[in-house]
């Protein structure tokens, strides 16, 4: 009986407290908290009021070190490919075309020697780690404060920063080809000329190596880029080959056993007999194991026939 009245007392007081609490919030709802970020010193002083941030209309300022959408200032890019290499998710795709001469300078004075035929960043793949921005030597690749870039089509997550037209790309490629051909011709000419002009071999290598040295710094990034890729491809291919081999082996292993089944019912062909003998040193235990298989088939057929 005592708990009965205590229950009523407790219920009344707790219900009253609850109503007071929610009513206080209704009264406090006439003011909203200001849309300020945690960095603001007054952030924790806003204890009451509506917390809703009406996002498209209001937004909290992004901190300066915020890592959001990538942007590449293509005029400052030397197409060094470091960003693409460091990217853990391979979201940067670059297609470089070597220029035959220096094509300009970036804003920090680095000379540009490679055209970017393609500089695509797939923000759908990006993991926003920011590694690409840290390795960028000219600081042309940066993370901006834009974070609201949802799209209707997943393909729209790909951002193309290269500004070259297809015609330009073709032109530059042809130029490079012509240049390479000329160089080859020169080298061939030099080689052809060398034995005619001079017999001592000390003088020849020097001029032949020098132009190479000039070209190399330009060509280097290209080589570096392609080599590991090739290596990786080769590695991958090798792995795949191994896998395939293994698979083939196992695949071969299966047909090896099949003839066994048939052999119990029908006279085995000569080839099968041979295979069996070749690869099955212990056919005895496998026989009882595989016997049920033809048995399984039979009821199936019967069932179908019944149907």
């Amino acid at each position: 009986m005592n708990t009965y009245w205590l229950n009523i007392k407790y219920a009344v007081s707790s219900l009253y407290t609850g109503l007071k609490l929610s009513f206080r919030h209704i009264l406090e709802a006439n003011e909203s908290r200001k849309p300020i970020g945690m960095a603001d010193t007054t952030y924790f002083q806003q204890q009451t009021g509506i917390v809703t941030l009406q996002y498209p209309h209001q937004s909290i300022a992004v901190p300066d070190n915020g890592r959001y959408r990538l942007h590449n200032e293509i005029d400052d890019c030397i197409v060094c490919d470091k960003c693409a290499k460091i990217c853990p998710v391979n979201c940067i795709e670059i297609e470089p075309i070597r220029a035959v001469e220096e094509i300009g300078k970036t804003s920090d004075g680095t000379s540009k020697r490679i055209y970017a035929a393609k500089f695509d960043i797939d923000m759908g793949k990006c993991c926003f780690c920011g590694l690409c921005t840290t390795v960028c030597p000219t600081e042309c690749l940066t993370m901006t404060k834009a974070y609201d870039f949802s799209e209707y089509d997943v393909a729209d997550h790909n951002y193309a920063f290269a500004e070259m037209t297809p015609l330009e790309i073709l032109e530059k490629k042809q130029k490079l080809e012509v240049f390479a051909r000329e160089k080859e011709a020169k080298a061939a000419a030099l080689k052809a000329n060398a034995p005619k002009e001079d017999t001592p071999g000390a003088g020849i290598p020097k001029p032949s190596f020098k132009p190479k040295l000039n070209v190399r710094p330009v060509a280097k990034p290209l080589n570096i880029e392609e080599k590991p890729a090739d290596d990786a491809k080769a590695m991958a291919l090798e792995i795949m080959r191994k896998k395939n081999d293994a698979a083939n082996r196992s695949a071969q292993a299966k047909p090896v056993f099949r003839p066994l089944i048939k052999s119990t019912e029908t006279p085995p062909s000569i080839d099968q007999e041979e295979k069996k003998e070749e690869k099955d040193p212990v056919p005895a235990p496998s026989k009882p194991i595989f016997r049920p298989r033809p048995m399984m088939k039979k009821p199936k057929d019967e069932g179908e026939a019944e149907k």
């Binding site: 919030h25 209704i26 009021g49 509506i50 809703t52």
Partner: peptide, 10 residues
């Protein structure tokens, strides 16, 4: 609206 205000929403 009442539910929103009680829960500090809009």
């Amino acid at each position: 609206k009442v539910s929103a205000f009680i829960q500090d929403r809009l």
